[in-house]
Structure formats: C-alpha cells, structure tokens
Design a protein around this nucleic acid. Structure first.
Lengths: 172, 172
DNA sequence: CGCATTCACTTAACATGTTAAGTATCTCCG
DNA sequence: CGGAGATACTTAACATGTTAAGTGAATGCG
C-alpha cells in the first residue's frame, strides 16, 4: 500500500463557482507554496530514511560549504530563524553531527562546524539527493529551471526593503 | 549559473567538501523558499493586526469563494494537511469565524462555511491585502508575474506523480 | 446480517516557523 | 571605570508542518 494520505496537491478545484475575489489558488504565495511543496515532496522520503529533516539537511550542507560559521551567519546562509536554528543545532550536536566551540575573542559567539560523522552522513545522502535533483532538472528542463530561478531572484530583489523595518509609521 | 565543474585533478577521496554539490543557496527549494518568504513578509504584519495567521486567512478566503465545503475539499483548496486544518478549524470555530454542521447523508463529513463575522473580518482585511498585492505586482511587473506563475505551474505539473507512491519497492 | 475494509476526519507526537522575552557578553561614552 | 545600550545567542509560547495512530461512520462482500 503506497501510503498516500490525500495530498492536497493534485486536482484542479472543479465546480468553480462565482469568484468575488481573485481566485486565491492563483495568488503568488500559493503558487510558490505549491511549487515548493511539489519539489520538496521528492526529497523528503530520502532525507527521512537518513533521519534528517529538510532543515537539518540545509544546515549540514551549509556547514559543509563554509567550514565553520557563527550561528548568525549560519542562520542567514541556511535561511533559518535564530530560534529554529538554536533548537536544531542543539539536536545535531547531541547526535554528534556538528561541533561547537565558543570564539575566544568574543564569548558570545560560537563557531559551528560539521563533524566527521556529519561529513559521513552527508556523503551517504548526497548521491540520492543529486539524483533527485537531476531528475527534476530533466523533467522541467535545465534552461527553464535556470530561467525560473532567475525570476525568483528578481522577485526577491524587487521586494527587498519593502517591509523591512523602515516603515517608521506604526510604533507599538 | 550552471553547476560548478568538479576539479578534474580530484579523482577520489569523497570528502564532502570536494563533492561537486551545487551551491545550496541556489538550489531550487531554497530559491522558492526565499521568494515566498519575501512575498509573505509583506502580508504578515497586516494579517497579524487583524489577529489572523497566513493559514487562517487562506481558509477564510477559500470558504468565501466556495460557500461551503467538506473538510477534505477545503484542505485541498487551501493547500493544508488534514491535521493542520483540523486544528485551525477548531480555533476558527471557537472564534465564531466559521460554522460547521454534520452532513445528513454521511455522518462522517462535516460541512464548513464562513460566518457573518468571518465575512466582516475578511472585508476589513481584503483592502490592505489587495493593496499589498498590487504593490508587489507593480514592483515586479504584471507580465513577469504572470510568466512566473505560469512557470511555477509547469514545474508543479512536471513533478506531479513523481514521488506519488510508485516506489514499488518498499511495501512495509 | 456480520464483519473486515475503507473513508473522513481527529488526536497525538515531534519538529519547525514566528514573535517576544531572557541571558550573557561586549562596546561605547561620559 | 562603570553603567546604558547593543549584540549574539537562547528560551519560551503559540501556531503550523509532517507523519502515524485513533475513532466513528459508511461500504462491500460472503
């Protein structure tokens, strides 16, 4: 039995009744959410087999590419919020996948790095991950994929600094 | 933007740092995540002022457009998993923003609909939401936005049914 | 009819997202 | 030098994501 718990992904809402507001299923956030979910659905089973969540994997990948990093830097790289990262690092450290040591110059900072075990785990996951990514690229088209990512980057750029805290209007 | 070629002099020693893995900050999932976050960051403050989360807002919008729906149908429309929806509906019902009644034909199903209060709340949020969406459209460009959403849809399509339980290998 | 199976949810358990508050450390300025 | 403020996290609290298990109601089939 392929356990398929009714993924809310397929099926184009039939019986489209009168739509007063813009059909929200076509809103930009929904489009992005659905696309991302379609992609992540491919990776999650493999990661899960290795006992990793998507975020844990992001952190390991980030660490593998930058040697060692402060927590804040890592948060930026792996695109995680501080609190999430804090929890995940605690768990990864308990599993001996990463190592942490306080910076000598500044006791507030801690340098995080991937451990030997972490490297081994990555090596065991990477091939499958790459294969999946290759399959996605193949299905969607390498050129289109590059185009899409270009547009996503532009979107991000065009919104940079829009609600970024310099609104200076609403104080609490 | 294409994948970094592996160092040809490095023929062995699969140390993770030498693995020709793509810069993960440019992976498709990350691109999608960052783009979506850039967009949602615009909406969250406004929703928060009205005491709504992104998901609660999705549900209200979905209900407003389809009158009444079963929970499963609503999950598909709002792109939420059953458990999340179950919790949110419980809370929205407690706040009198939605109404629920069991279907007569099938006692298992319950029909969910938006309440008068829910409609009022939506009316108070919608203008700001629409304004934000308009600003985003303006900044990014309406044509490019349509193009982007087209590509996102194609991506979703091209991955449909890829990891959909056709593993055919591990059946418990 | 009886009962295993399926279905439509709901609960549970764990991990993360999100915001606010807390803690320890460092910096700067008087 | 010393305390106010900034900095780098960490904890806390609540909401959702994700998977597994539970519950009650229909269905199918002998």
């Amino acid at each position: 039995m392929s356990k398929r718990p009714a993924d809310p992904a397929n099926g184009s809402a039939p019986a489209a009744r009168q739509v007063p507001m813009r059909d929200f299923s076509r809103s930009l956030p929904m489009s992005l959410l659905r696309a991302r979910e379609a992609v992540m659905r491919q990776f999650r089973p493999s990661l899960r087999e290795h006992g990793l969540t998507e975020q844990q994997w992001r952190i390991l990948r980030a660490l593998a590419s930058i040697e060692a990093a402060e927590v804040t830097e890592l948060a930026r790289t792996a695109f995680l919020l501080g609190p999430s990262l804090s929890r995940i690092l605690r768990d990864l450290e308990a599993r001996n996948l990463i190592e942490r040591k306080t910076a000598k110059a500044d006791q507030r900072r801690s340098m995080v790095s991937i451990s030997k075990e972490g490297v081994k785990l990555m090596a065991s996951v990477a091939p499958t991950s790459e294969a999946i990514y290759a399959e996605i690229t193949s299905r969607f088209g390498a050129r289109k994929l590059a185009e899409l990512q270009e547009m996503l980057g532009e979107l991000e750029q065009s919104l940079a600094g829009l609600g970024a805290g310099n609104e200076a209007s609403a104080e609490e």
